[in-house]
Write a protein that binds this DNA or RNA. Structure first.
Lengths: 119, 119
DNA sequence: CCTTAATATCGTATATCTACGATAAACGAT
DNA sequence: ATCGTTTATCGTAGATATACGATATTAAGG
């Protein structure tokens, strides 16, 4: 599964270069990612994907089955998480295999540190 | 300044007892707190308050002056953060002195750990 | 091709968010 | 009591979020 680039306000963001972002960009990106976690269903989706071992596929249908929501609603939540930068999806035949963007948790924590502890 | 209790779905939450919360309550509370950070202005407010030394007061007016928003809009953001559990306000004469709830950052991180890494 | 299965998107209804100006409420000082 | 300062709340408008069913899309298999 190939790496997917994060974006902030449409522009690509390098996970390893938070230092290169302006302070304001940091806060915007932190807000974007936080909005991703601002719904219990999306928290659960990130948890499912973050805990999966690499070999274990997690397709859209698995997520739909795990949540008490309609398929279309889950699809919307997946879109929100994808656009925020939490997850990525890879088409695999008729299914879409989802996983968290690698290092996203550490990136989120780094953004919190820079945005909330910065001067 | 006296300690203010956190709530989850209206019920009080002990900062030191995440273990006592159900898994679902954890995810709901994480979503609530995340929604607090889901706007750049609120990220900036939390940053301002988190970085203040204890002796240094930070009244509502200071926050209004620091943000490019109308007083009523800032007041709304403060209300969101207060209801989410990030901050508390203490009335001091005609002013209201705000600060972050003690240990809230660690609590947020603990919720992330439990909600996103839990089984 | 045509069907089936899996996802995404559309359309829609309701609710919540965000921002502002105007107004109310609380307090200290005159 | 009245005034000015500070903050919260109200009313409102427009944008975004949330949920669902219905429909479109995509790919595999017949």
């Amino acid at each position: 599964m190939k790496e997917v680039k994060l974006t902030c306000e449409g522009k690509p963001v390098d996970l390893n270069e938070i230092g290169g972002m302006s302070f304001d960009e940091c806060k915007k990106k932190l807000a974007e990612l936080s909005k991703g976690l601002a719904h219990p269903a999306r928290v659960e989706i990130v948890r499912m994907l973050e805990n999966k071992p690499l070999e274990e596929r997690c397709v859209c249908g698995d997520i739909v089955n795990a949540l008490p929501l309609a398929q279309s609603s889950v699809s919307q939540h997946l879109k929100v998480l994808k656009e925020a930068g939490w997850i990525q999806g890879e088409i695999d035949g008729p299914c879409v295999c989802y996983c968290t963007v690698q290092g996203i948790m550490e990136y989120y924590l780094a953004l919190m540190k820079r945005s909330l502890k910065g001067k």
